[in-house]
Design a protein around this nucleic acid. Structure first.
Lengths: 117, 117, 117, 117
DNA sequence: GTGGTCTAGACCACG
DNA sequence: GTGGTCTAGACCACC
């Protein structure tokens, strides 16, 4: 279902989980009121420890994106989905950047900089 | 001269310094053969300890971007600057994204996702 | 377990640590998937500060020889071991050189020179 | 006449000069009683500052390899030359090592280790 | 005056 | 309990 956690990337596992879930929402694969798979299954899917999963969910609750319903499960309370228009804008920009031999790191730095303008 | 380090962002100071310097190069504010300010001044500028500065510079040396001349200073040896064309592409995309109320974090996640496609 | 760091040799301690660990791998005393002793123990073993140990490990990570698993430990990811054939070649050459009263420094200089030919 | 100093290697210039001169002696290109070129010419040859040259010569004097004759120049007082036999041994070993894809750094580490046996 | 290395020790992050 | 980051400050090496 979800992408997996890359243990060799240096990025903390729980951060990766947060990002994976946010991405799912962003791309509309998870929407408001949807229920997440049970923690024990997330544990298996991501190949990490329960504590690590819990820490990620805790953060998302803190951000108001998730809600825990005791004895039931985790539900998405607020989903900001990228419109297909936005995805297209990004796809277009990325295509041009790649054709100019820009790599992802440079693109990210550049975007941060331009964002501030 | 440079942007400053944000000590509360959670991102290690030395990583921020690496990114600041890379950005300066990317945007053409630092070019090949340019000399960096002395380490002790960077210390002051960034508001961190010498060790932290040195750690950043060490990494950049390893990547072949900087060169240390002992007793002389640090020099930029390889500067890949973003062409104005690339900057324009990014500026354009960012403008559209902002008008759609996308924030930087979402934009970054989306870019990573699209980049993989 | 490992050889010790010579603080009076002029060679930086962290470089010595890098070389000691590389040597252990080269000679097959450390192999792929092996876990290193915890940083705090390496500190004790080598008689240096944590920072110095970490600096060595950081370099080895960058070279792709080690991998850090946060909260778990350091693991060897890529181990190139010297074949017994290679060791024999070296042993043979060294034996002859010593019988000619060549010292290690001379042998090293000579090897560098011959290597370039 | 001599090899040149590589300012980008990270190895201090004066150490490189020491090694170059030792190598010249080792390979028999400089012998006992030979006079070195004047310091001002060494300066030019190596592309470094006088101080740097002087520091190298100082070290070699300390090791008893050179002698300064005031107002005349520097002379070699003790030259240990590698016999052609030794060079052949090394050449042979290096050839075999290279054919096994060993690089210079690994070879050096290995030699140091075997030397101790 | 420039870079380079190290220590001691605190405090944080991850699993 | 494991790794990771940072500071303060000393002392050294190089040009």
């Amino acid at each position: 279902m979800f992408s997996t956690v890359d243990k060799h990337s240096g990025v903390p596992a729980y951060i990766q989980i947060i990002n994976i879930l946010k991405r799912e929402i962003l791309l509309g694969r998870l929407g408001e009121e949807d229920q997440l798979p049970p923690v024990r299954e997330l544990e298996r899917i991501f190949g990490v420890n329960v504590n690590t999963v819990m820490r990620a969910l805790e953060h998302l609750q803190f951000e108001g994106i998730l809600e825990a319903r005791h004895g039931v499960g985790y539900f998405i309370t607020s989903a900001t989905r990228a419109s297909s228009e936005i995805v297209d804008i990004m796809r277009n920009a990325v295509k041009k950047l790649r054709s100019q031999n820009v790599d992802l790191q440079m693109a990210t730095l550049l975007m941060e900089e331009v964002w501030k303008e």
